[in-house]
Design a protein around this nucleic acid. Structure first.
Lengths: 349, 349
DNA sequence: ATCCAATTGGACGTATTCTGTCCCGGATGA
DNA sequence: TCATCCGGGACAGAATACGTCCAATTGGAT
């Protein structure tokens, strides 16, 4: 069953939406014993005309009937709603999860794709694809989009597709090089994104582990300076979220700093900043580019991360409170759900 | 699973079609290691443009990929096809059944709805609805449509819906009254159909069990005569199929005739005629209206009957060979399948 | 009994999408 | 090297969806 739904999700996602829409119409009509077209449209926040089209269809199927007093559900319709209920709750299981997370962390939108990136490689690609759709949807002409590195963002870059080339959009790396492998660097990802979408890109070449002197002199370079200014004005920021210790090791952080961070309870990493459980910044990479303050000005801050192992890290970054949209997978979302419930219990007890 | 599919059918009838279409595209691409758009469209007998729309969708879903050499399936696509295969074969079970029956009885079209009218009342309504769609689809302005009586035709009449009123269509009973209960008489059904579709209707009032004298004098009546002429020119005929003995009893046939009929192996009834296993007419009701010969002139002869108990009767009537379209249910279709296989075995052995 | 408010179904122009058809530059394989 | 077949762009016309308004009807409250 579960499998069947997932396959359908993949092959006919739009029809499942249609199905869900008709289902909610039916069940709404069932709840209200008799209801008029306009009232129903308002209740479901649809326009009158579209609701009417659906209602006509449902009538033709013998699931609804209408008279001068309004519409009511037929016996067949009632039976259909009742037998469909368990399927729909499973189908909409993810959207309930989305709602829960969205409301708890005060996000604008949460998208949960089925699966667990820790277990299936395919899920990470799916995560990237979903994030790509969110990004495309948010874009306007003239936008500057800052992106970070990481395997998840790489999946986004590799799977993104557009209808028409994105004229006037500029992809930039959010911050300077973090010494990861080439494929997962922000520079690479910005350029891949630009190439796949017909947009422009600009890169930021900054070596790692700069001394304070070197940093200062680099910032005096006009082209670096200007590029940083462009980056900091990004209207859209897409970033991954990592486990603090894993990222620190990958970036060959020196042992002393690492020990200090561990002592402070470092949990998550995003945009080169390290966060503890409460979402407080306890360390930052010494490089140039987007700063956390800049996120306030950005209109779309999109976090993309999945895999049940990243649940805590995601929660930590979300608590910092500058993200607008979270794209994640079911594995991580279930962890988030557990964290939320636990927290609420403590608050109650 | 089965239940889920049926519910989906009800709520989004085109869902499975679209899904099947995309599935065959994917599997076709998988078979041909690499194939071009035009070649693929030809192989699936689709137009280039529609195929392209679907292919673009499948690309966006990451199931197909395209390069200058043609399209090929991705790993994700391959996995999808493989896991979907068992479902699709079950799903396409009905269309295979349809094909089998259609080819064996040389029909133009066969439609099989899921379920068994003997077991679920809902299936009979579904049967009626499907038949209604076939009827609507066949209609043109100025058509005369002859219908018979029976519970199945009653279900058709009660469930039919139209987008616009059918101007210029005329519904008539196929033959004179057969002494069934009012609701299931051809006259009632013709008038219900007309009212529900905005078409016109005319009735034929002929008492049952006429003596030869009475019959002759009735036929001298100008209005009866004219009405019979209208009926016999019907371009479309929709009829049910019954079990011979059940119908004989319901129509209070006298015992002697019944015994004679039984002796001759009466199996099926349609349009007031009784057929044996081979489709030969062995008895006819003494009433006026459509004759079997008239079916040749009719352009659409649509048989509607379901329930596994009617399998043999349906086969018998189909063997008479004047039907164009059969609308039935899975229960009856499975019986037909068994009959066909049995027959082929005998032909082989 | 009467009136009001709300209903459905019809109508219609516009916006949007779909689809048949053709073309082009380019990669591929003979 | 060349012919062939590919994907993708383009576009006009058809078909469909949609917003909007209106009229007739009716159920229910006053």
């Amino acid at each position: 069953m579960r499998e069947w739904i997932e396959l359908q999700q993949r092959l006919v996602p739009d029809l499942l939406e249609v199905m869900a829409k008709r289902y909610v119409i039916l069940s709404q009509v069932m709840k209200s014993e008799s209801i008029g077209r306009r009232a129903l449209a308002a209740a479901l926040s649809m326009t009158e005309r579209t609701l009417r089209a659906e209602a006509d269809f449902l009538k033709a199927q013998g699931l609804l009937e209408a008279n001068a007093a309004g519409m009511r559900i037929t016996d067949a319709g009632r039976r259909l709603v009742e037998s469909l209920a368990p399927f729909m709750s499973e189908l909409s299981g993810l959207s309930e999860l989305e709602r829960l997370i969205r409301d708890h962390f005060r996000l604008r939108e949460v998208i949960v794709v089925p699966g667990d990136a820790d277990e299936a490689r395919e899920t990470k690609r799916e995560l990237g694809r979903a994030a790509g759709r969110v990004l495309i949807r948010s874009l306007q002409g003239g936008d500057v989009v800052a992106v970070t590195g990481g395997t998840t963002l790489a999946a986004l870059a590799e799977t993104i597709t557009v209808d028409q080339p994105l004229k006037g959009v500029l992809f930039v790396p959010a911050r300077g090089g973090f010494g990861e492998s080439m494929d997962y660097q922000a520079n690479t990802i910005a350029s891949t994104l630009a190439k796949r979408t017909g947009a422009a890109y600009r890169l930021l070449h900054v070596p790692d582990h700069l001394s304070e002197d070197a940093y200062q002199s680099l910032m005096l370079e006009p082209n670096v300076r200007e590029m940083v200014e462009v980056i900091r004005k990004s209207r859209i920021v897409v970033h991954g979220i990592g486990d603090a210790m894993v990222m620190a090791r990958r970036r060959k952080m020196d042992t002393r700093t690492m020990d200090a961070m561990r002592a402070e309870g470092a949990l998550a990493e995003a945009l080169g900043y390290y966060f503890d459980k409460s979402g407080t910044v306890i360390h930052r990479m010494s490089t140039v580019g987007l700063r956390l303050d800049d996120l306030e000005k950005a209109e779309h801050v999109i976090a993309v991360a999945g895999g049940s192992s990243k649940g805590e890290a995601i929660a930590a970054v979300l608590r910092y409170g500058q993200d607008d949209v979270l794209v994640t997978d079911e594995g991580a979302a279930r962890r988030l759900e557990a964290i939320i419930r636990q927290e609420r219990q403590q608050a109650d007890g």
